[in-house]
Simulated assay, not measured.
Amino acid sequence: MSGHGAPELTVKNCQDLRVAVIAAQWHTKVMDGLLDGAQRALKELGIEEPTIVRVPGTFELPVAAKQLAGRGYDAVVALGVVIRGGTPHFDYVCQAAALGLTEVSVSTGVPVGFGVLTCDNEQQAVDRAGLPGSAEDKGHEAVTAAVATAAMLRSVSEPWH
């Protein structure tokens, strides 16, 4: 299982962080699970009013993330799923999403939670979507990672008293 070895993250004092979640629309069942997991994590962290937006697909996540990162959000979470098919389309979309979201995070200094599933088949995606019976909850994990990073960045940028 790919989730083996994942850290147990504890995030405190993050209720006032501004968080945006961007979710692709392809593969509705999987995306509903990812988005539900993300919203559950936000609620657990005490973030009451996140911004939730939808884009057509995973390829559109980086441009939306760039715009939101530039509008004062402390963290952005990108959720999507790409399932391998019989053409190179999978490779191009996965690479574009990963590189694009990384570039957004590095260039803006805003943490981007990577909740993009890149799977060989639909069952692998379902197993990671946080649905009943899923082994993993990648929507929840992406939010927790982005918010934990934003909280850490804020703590090291505040002056010591």
Rank of each mutant, 00 (worst) to 15 (best):
S2P: 14
G3L: 14
H4S: 06
G5Y: 03
L9E: 00
V11S: 06
N13R: 15
Q15D: 09
L17W: 07
L17F: 02
R18W: 01
R18S: 11
R18A: 12
R18E: 01
R18G: 01
A20W: 07
A23D: 02
A24E: 00
A24W: 01
Q25A: 05
K29E: 12
M31G: 01
M31C: 06
L34E: 01
L34A: 06
L34Y: 08
L35N: 02
L35R: 06
G37N: 08
G37M: 09
A38K: 11
Q39H: 05
R40M: 05
A41M: 11
L42D: 05
L45E: 03
I47Q: 08
E48G: 06
E49H: 14
P50F: 11
P50Y: 07
G57W: 02
T58M: 02
F59A: 12
F59T: 00
L61N: 05
P62Y: 13
V63S: 12
A65Y: 09
A65K: 12
L68F: 14
A69D: 01
R71M: 10
G72C: 05
A75L: 09
A75R: 10
A75I: 06
V81F: 10
I83Q: 09
I83G: 10
I83D: 05
R84Y: 10
G85F: 10
G86Q: 12
T87P: 02
P88L: 12
H89T: 04
H89Q: 07
F90N: 02
Y92P: 00
C94S: 15
Q95Y: 13
A97M: 03
L99H: 15
L99Q: 15
G100D: 03
V104P: 03
V104S: 08
S105D: 00
V106N: 09
S107W: 08
T108E: 00
G109V: 03
V110H: 12
V110P: 02
P111Q: 12
P111L: 07
G115M: 10
C119I: 04
C119G: 06
C119A: 15
D120C: 02
N121H: 15
V126L: 15
R128Y: 04
G130W: 07
L131K: 15
G133W: 09
S134P: 00
E136P: 00
E136K: 13
E141Q: 14
V143G: 12
V143Q: 10
A145F: 09
A146L: 10
A148M: 08
A151W: 13
A151N: 10
M152K: 15
M152N: 08
L153P: 01
S155G: 04
V156L: 14
V156Y: 12
S157W: 08
E158D: 05
W160H: 14
H161A: 11
